[in-house]
Design a protein around this nucleic acid. Structure first.
Length: 610
RNA sequence: GGGGUAGUAGCUCAGUUGGUUAGAGCGCCUGCCUGUCACGCAGGAGGCCGCGGGUUCAAGUCCCGUCUAUCCCGCCA
């Protein structure tokens, strides 16, 4: 009997096969017969006449049930929003007063003559329109299949598809091969924490899920692939943020016989293509370029948002001989005094000021010095330490006018820049809230950040560490500095930044085995046996004719987030994980059975709960 | 690991200096309604005020703890 019913439904779906989607019918179809299938978006029962908005992936069509058909009326009476139905009927042009200009199909409606209720829906746990954006993510993710069914979310999935499609077309036309690399990789404890996968057949041994296909793609260059790309899934077992997921997708690219200029041109073309195909927007090239030093010095971050000004100024000269010990002391210690003018923000509240100060403190500042210009006079707790000359010089260099507030940071150069970089972004948000600063949502300010230092000195480890990764090639003329002054060596590294978001980064790689070995052993001071076990195959590969090569990788999720005008990458991932790395719908991760653990030669030791 | 914010009806939120029976909008249920498109109108149901403890004659409200979510720092290309 049950089987019979299922067959009946199965059969029904064929009898009522759809002839159009819900966004297709137009005035020209008037008079014809059509069948639509989809979800009930809303029901408006006027007693006599009844309207149903039928929705599918493509759009919405209004169904009309004219009075007089008691059998159909009974059927329609039973349907609820989100039920799945098929309707057959006559397409009729709407009378002019009834036309809905907000709907693609608003000039017609389908007058139902037959209805199949394919599946009745329970009442959804949250609204199915855009007001659900305010519903807690927790609940939406538990019912992600309903959340995704909302048209704004289906649009985002479509947008993501269009983005990867545009990428694939461009890469194909540029001669790139899509090559898949292993998901089960070897652990490389440098860098991000990895997800480990126990190997049943090799007791005690573990695979690691790749943080990126970095090493494999370089091997593909040695193999002569010349141009490789992949939309690669990558994994990092680190704490999450709005723009970070434990698994994410990279557009991974590597190519041979190129220099940095070739890379810039290739990627600028790619971005042009993506923005054109997905949004219909023309992006201007070439992109602006800025050295890492300038980015830090002028904006306090290595990924400046170029959509607004408020640049940091250097006040070192002004306070060279200042009576204000905090500033003088920082300068005497070889540091810097930086400042920027948050134009028009003198009216900030005590709470807002405290928030800015907290932000500064979280980056190591002892406080946040400021000068407000309000009602024709300057107000500041530190004003009394400044001489008239210093005040005049400040007014001049920071262009201080009434209503402005200037923030200061005095520390070593990098920290001072970082602190103000953060305050600058927060101040911009406050100005936007007040309507004093506006950022065009359709502005796309691409920027290459270049000339990063190849190494950073890690105070904790007491040695140099690669700022990008250890395969980045030094700028040619800086190679002699590897021995004398490693931190002055610039890498052939480049980041692509868009509106303050790091879209991607990469570098020209080292392809000479001797230089790579030197970087590993002499500069980064990695023990030779560790080098051998982790990178030995790579050094050997380079001895067999490695071509000069370089690459780049982009966060596809971040790119789609920006294209879709969203703020969280979770919005553009079909089934994202929450901040604890759990996927709420399937309740993953789950506990393994005893047998599974035994097979994998694993014992779990749970943390003590106090 | 640390800090901020939030947790009250299915959803979004209000709830005064602690004070009687905890409210609104949407949704849901019932009825009415022949042109709506967020239909309208009338009525109704629905609450462990996250959880545990404390202060008090009295706690949604104050205190302590805890859990959950989210944002940020640490961490992470």
């Amino acid at each position: 009997m049950l089987v019979y019913q299922e067959q009946a439904v199965f059969l029904a779906s064929f009898i009522m096969k759809r002839t159009h989607n819900c966004s297709q019918l137009r005035k020209s179809d008037a008079g014809s017969t059509a069948t639509l299938s989809g979800w009930v978006d809303s029901v408006r029962d006027h007693g006599g006449i009844l309207f149903v908005d039928l929705r599918d992936r493509e759009g919405l069509t209004q169904i009309v049930l004219d009075p007089g058909n008691s059998e159909l009326e009974a059927q329609f009476g039973s349907i609820k929003p989100e039920s799945v139905i098929s309707v057959q009927g006559k397409v009729l042009e709407r009378v002019s007063e009834a036309v809905n200009p907000n709907l693609d199909t608003g000039s017609i409606e389908l007058h139902a003559s037959e209805l199949k209720v394919l599946n009745v829906s329970k009442t959804p746990p949250f609204p199915m329109d855009d007001t659900a954006d305010k519903t807690s993510e927790d609940l939406r993710m538990t019912y992600r299949y309903l959340d995704l069914r909302r048209s704004s979310n289906l649009k985002l999935l479509k947008l993501r598809h269009q983005t990867s499609q545009a990428i694939r077309n461009y890469m194909d036309e540029e001669g790139f091969l899509d090559v898949e690399t292993p998901m089960l990789f070897k652990s490389t404890p440098e860098g991000a924490r990895e997800f480990l996968v126990p190997s049943r057949m090799n007791p005690g041994a573990f695979y690691a899920l790749p943080q990126s296909p970095q090493q494999y793609k370089q091997m593909l260059m040695v193999a002569g692939v010349e141009r490789y790309y992949q939309l690669a899934r990558c994994f990092r077992d680190e704490d999450l943020r709005a723009d970070r997921q434990p698994e994410f997708t990279q557009l991974d690219i590597e190519l041979s016989f190129i220099d940095r200029e070739d890379m810039y041109a290739l990627i600028e073309g790619l971005m042009q293509r993506v923005w054109k195909d997905v949004l219909g927007v023309e992006i201007k090239t070439p992109f602006l370029r800025m050295s890492y030093f300038d980015a830090m010095n002028r904006f306090g971050v290595d990924k400046p948002d170029m959509r607004f000004e408020m640049e940091l100024q250097d006040c070192g000269e002004i306070f060279q001989n200042s009576g204000f010990k905090v500033f003088k002391g920082a300068l005497d210690a070889g540091g810097a005094v930086k400042a920027f003018n948050a134009k028009g923000l003198a009216d900030l509240t005590q709470g807002e000021l405290r928030d800015l100060e907290d932000a500064a403190k979280s980056l190591g500042a002892k406080g946040l010095a400021f000068i407000k210009s309000e009602g024709g006079e300057w107000k500041s707790p530190i004003l009394k330490f400044f001489s008239d000359e210093e005040k005049a010089a400040l007014k001049e260099s920071l262009q201080i006018e009434d209503g402005d507030i200037v923030f200061f940071a005095a520390s070593d150069w990098e920290q001072a820049c970082t602190i103000l970089g953060r305050v600058r972004l927060d101040a911009a948000k406050l100005l936007i809230k007040r309507g004093k600063l506006s950022i065009d949502p359709a502005a796309y300010k691409f920027l290459w950040v270049i000339e990063f230092p190849l190494m950073l000195f890690d105070e904790e480890a007491g040695r140099y560490v690669a700022s990008h990764h250890p395969f980045t090639a030094p700028v040619e003329e800086d190679i002699p500095l590897l021995d004398s002054d490693p931190k002055a060596v610039r890498g052939q590294h480049y980041d692509l930044v868009l509106n303050g978001v790091e879209l991607g980064g990469g570098s020209i790689r080292i392809h000479q085995p001797a230089l790579q070995k030197k970087v590993f052993e002499e500069v980064l001071k990695i023990e030779p046996d560790v080098v051998e076990s982790r990178f030995g195959y790579m050094l050997r590969a380079f001895e067999y004719g490695a071509p000069p090569h370089g690459g780049i990788a982009f966060g596809l999720d971040r790119m789609v987030t920006i294209l879709g005008g969203r703020s969280s990458i979770r919005d553009v991932i079909a089934f994202p994980k929450n901040q604890k790395g759990q996927e709420m719908m399937t309740q993953s991760p789950g506990v393994a059975t005893e047998k599974q653990l035994r097979d994998l030669h694993i014992k779990t030791v749970l943390p003590n709960k106090k």
